[in-house]
């Protein structure tokens, strides 16, 4: 079935969202047009403003419309602690934990030579500038426990060696409430290698 040009364009545009195929995009478009005109206008307005105004925080590189995001500009955070994560959603995960009071740095990815992602894409230059300010005492590497995440952590730890900074890596192992029987051998090997004294 043929739609009018504008409707076709709307459906095509909606398909840029993750997990949205042609059928879902069509349903979304009809839903907005039939029942949610006002909400659709609001969505369009918000989308427009967000695309115009949201940029990266100049300190931690997370998404922010202000020059410094609310975490980086807060006086209640510990400015001598820096937690390095791969994506803004990792910040949310760590914040949910509730016990971390330091600042963050978001790499927006990990080193992946085969995809052509190197240090420039990860903002390593900005990170080196942060290290050079001499306000950071400890860097916590919270990149994912994948080989790429490990490589990224290693790269940053080598960088930090030039400065008087303690570099730590988050522990990996058995999840709480998990049973050893069902845990893969790789994770279990990590858990044993990083065992602690009681």
């Amino acid at each position: 079935m043929q739609f009018t040009p504008l409707l076709t364009q709307l459906i095509e545009a909606l398909r840029c969202l993750p997990g949205v195929g042609p059928k879902t995009a069509q349903r979304m478009a009809f839903q907005l047009l039939e029942h949610h005109r006002e909400k659709g206008k609001y969505l369009a307005k918000t989308l427009h403003e967000a695309m115009q105004q949201i940029n990266h925080c100049t300190y931690c590189r997370t998404f922010s419309e202000a020059e410094l995001c609310h975490l980086c500009s807060s006086a209640r955070r510990d400015h001598s602690l820096l937690c390095i994560v791969e994506s803004p959603s990792d910040i949310v995960a760590v914040e949910q934990m509730g016990s971390y009071r330091g600042l963050y740095f978001v790499l927006m990815g990990h080193l992946s030579p085969l995809d052509g992602i190197g240090p420039e894409q990860l903002g390593i230059k900005e990170l080196t500038l942060l290290f050079a300010r001499n306000t950071i005492k400890e860097v916590i590497l919270a990149t994912n426990p994948t080989v790429e995440g490990e490589a990224t952590a290693h790269y940053i730890s080598e960088l930090a060696k030039q400065y008087p900074i303690t570099v730590t890596r988050i522990a990996h192992g058995v999840p709480l409430g998990g049973e050893l029987e069902y845990i893969d051998s790789g994770t279990l090997a990590h858990a044993f290698a990083g065992r602690g004294m009681l």
């Binding site: 030579p113 080989v147 490990e150 290693h154 790269y155 080598e158 090997a189």
Partner: peptide, 14 residues
């Protein structure tokens, strides 16, 4: 067992 490559050896693996 998985190979546990660290540091420069991991980069060499890549």
């Amino acid at each position: 067992a998985p190979f546990q490559l660290r540091g420069d050896c991991l980069l060499s693996g890549f």
